[in-house]
Design a protein around this nucleic acid. Structure first.
Length: 826
RNA sequence: GCCGCGAUGGCGGAAUUGGUAGACGCGCGGGACUCAAAAUCCCGUAGGGGCAACUCUGUGAGAGUUCGAUUCUCUCUCGCGGCACCA
């Protein structure tokens, strides 16, 4: 007998599928479409490990299932290939990023192919090719034209190792997200995208999306919308006016001082001419430096200095001193806050510097209230706290009167309702070589001028040295042929922008390019985009929760506003697969030396199919799991059992007519039960239980093999084998295809029609009903499924075991739950 | 601190969403085949008690709702992920 040998059959079918173009998608209007997408990977030099593979396995299983269900499936793959690693590698080795990326790409592609993933490779894209980034530049121009791209000189996070600026979200705990080194602040003129203009829509539209709660919550958190009141106040003895923002304004009459951020642009104006001017500015600069380098991690350590100025409080709390405080943030709200005894930080700050506090909000508990009054404790509960001031709200719960307080303040013209956000504009300038050049020309006469669309792409020149200049300009600044050009407006001499775009710009629209990857007239045709998009199933890791997923949503909305597309969210459903950890429960990493690569497992003989099954069988796909080599042995054994079952027992030349015979009924039941279970589980993405159901089916067929007279059962036997293979096909495509062809099929199993179950095989003549007495199961009955309530209860009461428990007692209650149990209460 | 998710045998996990807890797999124990091993196949496997039929306990902890709770409500403990001086 021929043994199951994945090493032989897997490469064979991979080649046949690719040669036949099995996964080529085309715009067929007769079939409903499904667009299944996994985030396009960065082709790094490191090998793919079993953790990465899970992501692609999910997408592949889903897309194969959809195809067999009759959908027109688009399942593409490409390369997110701009970015720092290739450039840093070039600096180290002298190998050009282009070459490094090309080498890595072919290696990565080969790894994907040996797993048998069904991608439409005719749609392969590469974000660092001019054919692609030409359109990334086009979208820059679109944002620029719509007033959403602007340049600004400002203090920016600067990574001294990567020698480039970073967006907010790319700074993690004061460290660079890429290299992990401490970041600094540097003043530079940079390009931004105005994502803040879309903050409200990005927030609101989240509600409609079929995304995991945790990702939605991360985005909400990141956008950080809070409603509050904005107070305007004149600065005493000056012509100046300041504005403060407060989301917890209910106890506004308690305000006794004001704090301003040490890096607030207004600070220098505020203290101008005062005797303490220099002292305040020096101290503030010191605080900013301290905060940026080491931070005020310890909450006890707040610092500050009195500015020498006061505001005249608009709500009548008198003259309030203005302090510079280390905890005030210049970029949140207005950067200036009115402070009171009802905020932990304000309270601590005031105590430290001996500033007056005046509580007006108290807890119900009189003991506690006394402590609040004596300033022993800080009370901040704006929901449950009771106000004593102003008079109109005396004795009322702050939480229940928030709206009334807003109306009160607005009615008296004391403050205006405002919304504040945490999200800041997206910084896209990179002082690096390996990115899409920003298509702008700086003209001494006309300023920053957009490169006309017909002059795109602004091509990345080939250079010799990739070393950043260190002065804050990209290596492109050293290429005169690139820099020197003429102004598109006046024709005079001008210079090109030397910054390149953040890699997240490329990934903010790549899902659209897959719809029309070879179009050289436009980024995509409206028709093709309309046909394929939005993405139906987007599958990826949670690491993209705020950056990529927020930026892509932003660009989509901009394109929608520009009427380039008809949808306004790019990803209808988002699935975040759980991480695969090393067997010891740690994250897999090269440095820890605990990575497990599918290539190695394939070489050992397990085969891609067993690995794919294990990726999904190991647990719910969205939960983390530890990789288990023993477990892989289990899925491999399962495939062997299927091989034996079909190869040995079924590949006989038997008629495919369905036998109706009492002997084959158990097989019919097993089969139809499994089809139903696997189909429903796939709809719910319960891959692990779908695989368990197939294992169960195989076990039952093994038993049936012993019991049933083989000859008589042959036709149903064959049908069982074929349908089982079809169920297996999305998970283990190679073995399913091989056995399918051995059974005599000439067309691929992957374009065969998904089997349907027949309910008639699933109805039972008798069912098992549990009988509970006082909530405990005491007996089991075999009854007809359509037994009436009355009969079921009567049968239960008549059961001798039940009699033992209920004899001579009052029956208080009797319940029959159809098909499940009888519950008796005595 | 805030937000989100979770806790079930020796292990990964299942349970039709309120209805017989532990499917399926791993591991372990026993058996068959074999001169032997591997591979394969079959049986057993939550814990305690009993020769047994059987019986008691059991889904992180405690309360509650219910005829009935792994599932719903509240309080707490622990773990994972995210954000964090956000006024």
């Amino acid at each position: 007998m021929q043994r199951y040998n994945p090493k032989e059959i897997e490469p064979k079918w991979q080649k046949i599928w690719e040669d036949q173009g099995l996964y080529h998608a085309s715009e067929d209007p007769d079939k409903p479409k499904k667009y299944v997408l996994e985030y396009f990977p960065y082709p790094s030099g490191a090998a793919m490990h079993v953790g990465h593979v899970r992501n692609y396995t999910i997408g592949d299983a889903v897309s194969r299932y959809y195809r067999m269900q009759g959908f027109n499936v688009l399942h593409p793959m490409g390369w997110d290939s701009f970015g720092l690693p290739a450039e840093n590698y070039a600096i180290k080795t002298g190998v050009s990023p282009r070459k490094a990326i090309d080498d890595n790409t072919s290696h990565f592609k080969q790894q994907l192919m040996q797993m048998g993933f069904g991608y439409d490779w005719s749609r392969e894209i590469d974000s660092s090719k001019p054919e692609y980034y030409r359109w990334t530049q086009e979208f820059f121009l679109l944002l620029h034209k719509r007033g959403l791209a602007y340049q600004q000189e400002s203090l920016q996070w600067w990574c001294p190792v990567d020698k480039t600026v970073l967006a907010n979200e790319q700074v993690e705990n004061g460290k660079c997200w890429r290299c992990g080194n401490d970041v600094e602040k540097k003043s530079l003129k940079q390009w931004f995208f105005k994502i803040t203009d879309y903050a409200d829509r990005l927030l609101q539209d989240l509600d409609e999306l079929d995304w995991s709660e945790s990702i939605k919550s991360m985005q909400r958190n990141w956008i950080g919308r809070s409603e509050g009141m904005r107070f305007k106040a004149p600065v005493k003895d000056t012509e100046l006016e300041i504005e403060t923002f407060s989301a917890h304004f209910e106890a506004f009459t308690a305000d006794t001082f004001v704090v301003i951020a040490p890096d607030h642009p207004m600070l220098s104006v505020l203290v101008k001419g005062l005797p303490e001017e220099q002292e305040v500015l020096d101290f503030s600069a010191e605080m900013v430096k301290k905060r940026d380098t080491q931070g005020y991690a310890d909450e006890e350590h707040v610092e500050g200095i009195f500015t020498g100025r006061y505001i005249i409080d608009p709500v009548g709390n008198g003259d309030l001193p203005i302090w510079v405080a280390s905890y005030a943030l210049s970029h949140y709200g207005t950067g200036i806050v009115k402070c009171s005894a009802h905020d932990e930080r304000d309270f601590r700050f005031a105590k430290k510097y001996g500033i007056t506090l005046k509580p007006v909000l108290f807890p119900e508990d009189p003991e506690k209230a006394k402590k609040v009054k004596n300033l022993e404790i800080c009370f901040t509960d704006m929901k449950k706290g009771i106000l004593t001031s102003p008079l109109e709200f005396d004795g009322k719960k702050a939480g229940e009167n928030r709206q009334q307080i807003i109306e009160y303040l607005e009615g008296k013209g004391l403050a205006t309702k405002t919304v504040s956000y945490k999200i800041r504009d997206w910084l896209i300038s990179r002082q690096r070589y390996w990115g899409a050049p920003i298509p702008i020309i700086h003209c001494p006469k006309d300023g920053a001028v957009a490169v006309p669309s017909d002059q795109l792409p602004v091509k990345l020149p080939e250079i010799e040295s990739y070393e950043p200049s260190g002065d804050g300009r990209s290596p492109l600044a050293r290429v005169p042929e690139f820099v020197n050009t003429t102004c598109p407006t006046c024709g005079g001499p001008a210079e090109r922008e030397t910054d390149t775009m953040d890699g997240f710009a490329c990934s903010s629209w790549y899902f659209l390019r897959f719809a029309d990857p070879h179009n050289d007239k436009a980024a995509f045709s409206a028709d093709k985009a309309k046909f394929w998009l939005p993405v139906d199933d987007y599958i990826g890791g949670a690491e993209h929760a705020v950056m990529h997923l927020l930026y892509a949503r932003f660009w989509t909305k901009v394109m929608y506003d520009a009427e380039l597309i008809k949808f306004n969210e790019p990803f209808t459903t988002l699935r975040n697969q759980g991480m695969i950890l090393a067997p010891d429960g740690q994250k897999m990493s090269k440095s820890k030396g605990n990575t497990i690569e599918p290539g190695g497992l394939i070489d050992q003989g397990y085969g891609a199919d067993a690995i794919r099954l294990m990726e999904l069988f190991i647990g719910p796909w969205d939960q983390a799991a530890n990789w288990s080599v023993e477990g892989l042995g289990g899925t491999y054994r399962f495939l062997n059992r299927i091989w034996t079952l079909i190869h040995e027992d079924m590949s006989i030349d038997s008629p495919t007519i369905l036998a109706q015979d009492a002997e084959v009924l158990p097989i019919q039941k097993t089969l139809n039960k499994t089809i139903k279970k696997v189909t429903n589980d796939l709809e719910n993405l319960s891959f692990n239980t779908a695989i368990a159901a197939m294992m169960e089916c195989v076990n039952e067929l093994y038993k049936a093999k012993e019991q049933v007279k083989f000859d008589q059962a042959a036709p149903i036997w064959r049908q069982a084998g074929e349908q089982l293979l079809q169920l297996l096909a999305p998970f283990a495509p190679h073995i399913a295809e091989e056995l399918w062809s051995q059974l005599g099929h000439t067309q691929s199993i992957h374009v065969s029609q998904w089997p349907k179950w027949d309910e008639k095989y699933l109805v039972e003549d008798t069912i098992t009903i549990a009988v509970q007495v006082n909530g405990k199961v005491r007996a089991e009955l075999r009854l007809s499924p359509d037994v009436t309530d009355k009969d079921a209860i009567a049968a239960a009461k008549a059961d001798p075991k039940i009699q033992e428990y209920i004899a001579g007692k009052d029956l208080k209650k009797s319940i029959y739950i159809k098909g499940r149990l009888v519950s008796l209460v005595v």
